[in-house]
Amino acid sequence: MASSNPAVIQTCGLSKRYRKVTALSEATLTVPQGRISALIGPNGAGKTTLLRLLAGLARPTGGEVAVLGGAPRQDPAFLAEIGFVAQEIPLYRRLSAEDHIGVGAHLNPRWDAASVRQRLKGLNIPLDQTVGTLSGGQRAQVALSLTLAKRPRLLLLDEPVAALDPLARRQFLAHLAEAVAGGGLTVVLSSHLLADLERVCDHLILLAASRVQLCGDIDTVLAEHQVLVGPRKDTTAIEKAHTLVQATHTARQSTLLIRVGGPVVDPAWEAADVGLEELVLGYMGQHAGPAFSHLTSVGEDQ
């Protein structure tokens, strides 16, 4: 059922260059409707750039991007369908949450003020206090509630839980999941940590070195990969039939992360399912070089 959903986000060869730096390169990805997609990647991988391109806050320097069926554009009807919360959680520090509700009511065609008040009261966040005096977690909740009050069809969140303590993080994600359960909402949220998002997300976009390494439903992506453990030997036979993502060798043993291209026939290899964290680290290690080498070369000297 889910796979036949229309795509909310569709990009093809999407690129963004700032004067000398390539922030995003040839990104091709699809996010179907109703997904909560984890946009994962190390710092500087291009997560923020991708989100800003999707929100229409930046213009691509190459490729195509379609969000909700059209290019992101300066059009009130389009903007009404999109919610974006930047990493810094921009709010008017000297205005109260209630003031922000007023702002939203004046600037949006659809506006569910009651839901914001109810939600914030439920979290014991004062409505009449200036938001500058609230904690980071409370501000994130205010920003999320305000964004959801627009009743957007696509919600883009840049590192929304990075600054939150575990309880606030849990509340935030529960709030988010509840909104998606209401139907009609698709979410992309970025993080450099997967653990936070693993249970709430059902879709994954993995960015590393400004390129998309992986994109798809988490169940599908996991099913497409396997870990092979066996005595140390030449991997050319494996590489012929499968895509080798990452190979780790000790003196006697080889551990291979592969994207499965067919059945593994060589009985020397013991095949095992791969966990999400292992998979993500495998792809990041492949591209990130020294920063992740300590994660991929464990056991090298043993």
Binding site: R170, L176, E178, D202
Partner: peptide, 16 residues
């Protein structure tokens, strides 16, 4: 309801 489970556990609605 899916909504209640999700609000209590922060799990993906599709999981429920």
């Amino acid at each position: 309801t899916v909504r209640e489970v999700v609000a209590a556990t922060a799990v993906n609605p599709n999981t429920v």
